[in-house]
Amino acid sequence: MNMLSLLISALSQGMIYAPMALGVFIAFRILNTPDLTIDGSFVVGMCVCAVVTISGHPYLALLCGLLAGALAGLCTGLLQTKLQINPILSGILTMTGLYTINFVILGGQSNLYLQRTVINSAGAETQVASDTLYKSFRNLLITLSGNRRFDSNLSILILTSLIVLVLAVLLAVFFFTRPGIAIRATGDNEEMVRSSSINADRTRIEGIMLSNALVAFSGALLCEQQRYADLNFGSGMLVVGLASVIIGQVFFGRHSVTLGIISAIAGSLIYRVILQVAYKIDMPSYAVKLLSALIVVIALSIPLIRRALSQRRQETEEEK
C-alpha cells in the first residue's frame, strides 16, 4: 500500500471513531464528569446495529444503535442523580451490566457477522452478506463514476465525513439552544443551574444520554464498516476517546464549545494517523492499548511539565 492509501485508511477510521470522541468530549469536558459507560455503550451500539442490519434495515440500524446508547446513558444518569451513586461507579455498573445485555442481543454468542443464511436454488445453505450503508454508498459511487474501480477506504472516508459533518453542525447548533446551554452550565456550575430554576438532574441525564448516544452511533458505524460486531470491542474505548479529545486540544485549544467539537474530531483523525505510523514501523497490534494510554498520560502531563520548565527558566534568570 502506498502512503496515500495508508493515510486514507487512517482517516476513514478516524472519522468512524469521531462521534465517539465527541461523546467523550461531552462527558469529560462539557459535563465535567468521567463516564465509564462509554466502553459498554460503544458495544451496545455495535450489537444492536448488527442485529437490525442483518434483518435488512441498515439505515434504521444506525438509529437503533444510537438510541440503545442513549438508553445506556439514561441508566447511568439515573444512577448518578436519583440514587446519587458516584459517577465513576455508576458508569462501571452500567458497563458491567451491559456486557450481559450485549451477549443476549448477539443471540448468546460473542460475535456476529453481518450475513444471512439462505437456501439457494440447489437446496444448499449459503451465506449472503447483508446490505450495509457503506456497501450501498460504494455501489452508488461506482455507478456515478462510470464503473471505475474505487478505493473502498476512500468511499468509507467520504460517507463518514459527510455524516460526521452533519453531526458536528447539529451539535454545535444544539449547544447554543436553551436546552444546550443548560447542559453546558450543568457541567460548569450545577448549583447555578438549580438557582436558575432548571432541574439540574434532568439536564445532567440529558447530557449523559447525548454523550452515550454518540458513542453508540460510532459503534454502529464501525459495525457496518467492518461487517461484524464483537462483544469485547469496547474495552479501552474510553482511553481512545480521551486520547483523541486531548490530542485535539493541543492543536485547537479548549475555550469554546465549537472549537471543542472541531478539536475532538481532528483529534480522532490525528490519533488514527499516529497509530497508522506506529503500525508502519512494525508495532504489533496488541501494543495499541499501551500506546493509547501513554498518549493520554503524556498529553495530560504536558501542562505540568510546561509549568515546571517556565519556573526553572524564571529561577535561572533570577540567579543571573
Binding site: 436553551r178 446551554i181 443548560a182 453546558r184 452550565a185 460548569d188 447555578m192 436558575s196 430554576s197 432548571i198
Partner: peptide, 15 residues
C-alpha cells in the same frame, strides 16, 4: 458559570 460568556450566563438565569 466560569466557562460560559456573560451573555450566556444571563440567558440561562433568564430562562
Amino acid at each position: 458559570a466560569p466557562n460560559m460568556t456573560i451573555e450566556e450566563n444571563l440567558a440561562l438565569a433568564y430562562t
